[in-house]
Every structure is written in C-alpha cells, then in structure tokens.
C-alpha cells in the first residue's frame, strides 16, 4: 500500500469514528494537510459536566506517517499551562513511539484520557484571579470560560447597571432598542445566565483565605524613585498643571459665542459642569477622591 493510501485509510477511519467531531483540510492538490478536532472529556455525553476542552491541530507533512505530524493544541479551556505542557510531552512520546504508523487516533485518545482525569477547571477565575477549590460554586459559559458564580454575578449586575446608566444619559432617539446583552468577561461572546441564581452563591473560598499584602523594601525603593522623578520633571515644567489647563479650557468655552452664560444655577449649560463631569469620568481624580481616601486610610480604618 502506498503512503498516500495509508493516510487516506487512516483519515477515513477517523471520520467513521468521530464523524462531525473531526475536520480534515485538503490542499490545492487534494492531499490532506491538516486534521482538526476539538476534544472533550468522556462524560457519557453529559455536556453539562464537560468542564475542559482543547482543539488538536495535526499538520500532516509530506511523508507522514513515516515522519511525525506537527501538533498544536489550540483554544484550551479550563486548563492551565502546566496541564498543556504535560499534554505536549505525552504527544511527543506517542508520536515517536508510533513513527511509521497512523497516530492521530492515538493522540486524540491520550488527550481525551487526560481531560477526563482532570475534568475540573485548573485555570483561574479571570474576575478574582483565584482558582477553583472544592466546594466553590462555579459556572462554565458556553464559550468554556470559568468563573466563580459569585464573581460572574457581580460582573453581570455591574455591566447591566453601567449599560442602564449610559442609556439614561442618551437622548431618546439615540437609545439602544436592543436592551442589555450580557457578555463573557474574557472573550466578549454573548452569554445568557440566570443572575438571580448566580448571585445566591457564596464567595469563593480562596478569596477568604488569601494572605495580606506586605510593604517590601523593593516597593519602598520604587516609591522613592517615583517621587524623585516627579520632583525632577516638575522642576523642568514637565508636569501637567490641571488647574491651569482647566482654566484654559474654561476660557476657550466662555469665548465661544454659542454657549449660554455659566452663572445660571438651574441650567449650567455645557461649560463648567460638563467639563468637570467629563474630567471626572475620563480618569481625573477629584481632590476629594485623592485626599479623602488618604485620610481614611491613614486614620487606620
């Protein structure tokens, strides 16, 4: 049997076993060059209980199976780096063991076995940056991203509130007709979750057990460097003087004939209040924010 026929036979067998779960990409000469399959743990088809997955991409070089396929693991979900690295190791071993024989099905099997063994997310929750401990209530999105139910509920409630606040600011003709659509914090894919159920979950355990932050000498050193740079740049006129710049902005706005006078208390118009509002919203801290917080903290609360 020729090399080509052997590959063809392997691929036909794969398609017969895996059906829709595998896709084979052919090059312009009609030769198979890439095999792709998204692999899930075996959970007797209980899709709800599949917490991890990964896509295997095997490039078939000329001469396969007498030379090894080039394997990539893509879009890992619920898996951390060390699990992926272990999988690459196992794949490498399998490939050299099976040199000269069809190996794709073997690869799929070892990946599936490993996923079945570690069918609990080993990644971190992207919202709180902590892992998933036994007993934590967590949620898998359709896009296979993981969050503590508590954390996801927080995200959904806040984004919905932000959406509503933005809508309320808009004139009627600009308001969205679609309403709020929740999205995944990691990949922004649309998700639909029962917020009420999620928000009844307890906070994750690791969140409770984390240790406190300590001020190190490195940190002290950095703080010192920041202070020196500030003083130096200030002496060269390089530091933005917010008050002076705000006054300049005011002058520009006031000299603009289209704007009503700013001293009307009922409708302050676009000049003063709007500038302050946008300054606040876009990253400038009010004096209160900057100094009140400092005071509160240093008084030991």
């Amino acid at each position: 049997m020729s090399l080509n026929e052997r590959v063809q036979e392997e691929l036909e067998a794969l398609e017969a076993i895996l059906m829709d779960d595998i896709s084979i990409i052919y090059n312009e000469n009609g030769c198979p060059e890439l095999v792709k399959s998204t692999i899930f743990p075996s959970t007797a088809n209980e899709v709800d209980k599949q917490y991890v997955c990964v896509t295997l991409e095997a490039k078939l070089p000329d001469g396969y199976p007498d030379c090894e396929p080039i394997v990539q693991l893509r879009n890992p979900r619920g898996l951390d780096d060390s699990t992926i690295n272990n999988l690459y190791e196992a794949i490498k071993e399998k490939c050299s063991e099976f040199l000269g024989q069809p190996v794709i099905f073997e690869l799929i099997e070892i990946i599936r076995e490993s996923l079945t063994e570690s069918n609990l997310p080993t990644c971190q929750c992207a919202v709180c940056l902590y892992g998933f401990s036994d007993g934590d209530s967590f949620t898998k999105t359709k896009c296979f991203h993981y969050f503590h139910s508590y954390c996801l509920a927080n995200h959904l409630i806040t984004t919905k509130r932000h959406f509503q606040e933005e809508q309320d600011k808009l004139p009627a003709w600009q308001k969205s007709t679609k309403g709020f659509q929740a999205s995944c914090p990691v990949c922004r894919e649309h998700i639909n979750c029962d917020v009420e159920e999620l928000s009844s979950a307890a906070p994750p355990k690791e969140l409770e057990n984390a240790q406190n932050f300590e001020v190190t000498s490195d940190l002290r050193h950095l703080q010192e460097r920041m202070k020196q740079l500030f003083t130096y740049q200030k002496s060269r006129g390089g530091i933005i003087d917010i008050e002076a710049e705000e006054n300049k902005l005011l002058l520009i706005t006031e000299s603009n004939g289209d704007t009503p006078p700013a001293d009307n208390t009922e409708d302050p118009g676009p000049s003063l209040s709007n500038i302050n509002e946008s300054v606040m919203g876009d990253g400038l801290l009010s004096r209160g924010q900057r100094y009140n917080n400092c005071r509160l903290n240093s008084s030991g609360r």
Partner: peptide, 8 residues
C-alpha cells in the same frame, strides 16, 4: 489620543 489634562 492624550489631551492637555493627560486624559487618555
């Protein structure tokens, strides 16, 4: 993309 007040 950064204004005179340093906003981004």
């Amino acid at each position: 993309n950064i204004d005179r007040l340093g906003r981004i």
